[in-house]
Simulated assay, not measured.
Amino acid sequence: MEQQAIGQRLRQWFSLEGQTALVTGAARGLGHAIAVALAKAGASVAAVDIGDMTPLVKEVEDLGVTCRARTADLTGLSPDAAEGLIAWANKGDSPATILVNNAGVIRRGPALDEAADQSWRDVLDLNLSTPYLLARAFAGKAITEGRAASIINMGSVNSFQGGLHVSSYAAAKHGLLGLTRALANEWAPDGIRVNAIAPGYMETVLTTAHREDADRAARMLSRIPLGRWGVPEDLAGAAVFLASNASAYVTGSVIGVDGGWLAR
């Protein structure tokens, strides 16, 4: 009986039933895994990406919750477009109380390359400006309507490190960490929590080049204490924790999901 009571309390802490989560970059990789994790915790999903989200919709709806998908390129997002996206997310089963700013891009190359200027603009725009505009539209609506809410920004180990040949990406992810902390301070009195997840090196298309270079892959694995590449599903627990009441007293924080990379 005691074990049943403990299990019930745990389900209450981590349950997202009756909530809707807006997840950007949800078609594949980290965004897909996070959307499925939130759905498993009971949340309906509003998914946004430029890619095909048919597999995601089926996987989420097979769990017994609703998944709506909207195709959109979030690069160059305007304030009006951000407001429109939040309005769309709020028209589902319930108003959105969870925002996962996952959509992003990385461009690799020396800062002195001719293409660096355009890469800088593109990466800073999608990885930093878009999360800011969506967070502002999302929080503004939630505050006006008196809803508590959770925003989860997708940082990186490059939120703390410079990396190599990723100056625009490192700048954007450092900026996103600062934005997370600043908005957490600003919106805490209104019940809006803002946190971040900092993934390490994951088995996604963004790390294909690293993993296919045997020498580089070996060097990278040698400094990951857990001794393996992460997989998108490794983010599930952190995402559900930050979205749920289990983290009711957590804001302005970043959870590293990096196999111990940053501890070395």
Rank of each mutant, 00 (worst) to 15 (best):
A27C: 09
A21Y: 01
S15H: 03
Y132P: 09
D117H: 11
V157D: 05
Q8H: 14
A214T: 11
V257I: 11
G155D: 00
A149M: 07
S119L: 04
A263M: 08
E186Y: 06
I86L: 10
V166P: 01
M220I: 14
A87D: 11
E145V: 08
W88M: 07
D49K: 02
I192K: 01
V257C: 07
G146A: 13
S119Y: 12
F14M: 08
L99H: 00
R121A: 15
A87F: 05
R181Q: 15
A182K: 06
A209G: 04
I50W: 07
L235F: 06
A72T: 13
A5F: 10
A172T: 02
V60R: 02
L16P: 00
L112M: 12
R28I: 10
R68N: 14
S253N: 13
A116S: 15
E203R: 11
R211D: 07
P79S: 12
I50S: 09
R68K: 15
V123P: 00
I86V: 15
P225C: 07
L177C: 04
N245L: 13
D93A: 12
P199K: 04
G256T: 12
I151E: 03
I151H: 06
E233D: 15
A46Q: 11
L74P: 06
A196Q: 00
V166F: 01
A239Q: 03
S15N: 06
P189C: 05
K173R: 07
L183P: 01
T180Q: 02
D93S: 10
G104E: 06
I224Q: 03
D234T: 05
T251I: 05
L179C: 08
R108W: 11
W187C: 10
Q118S: 14
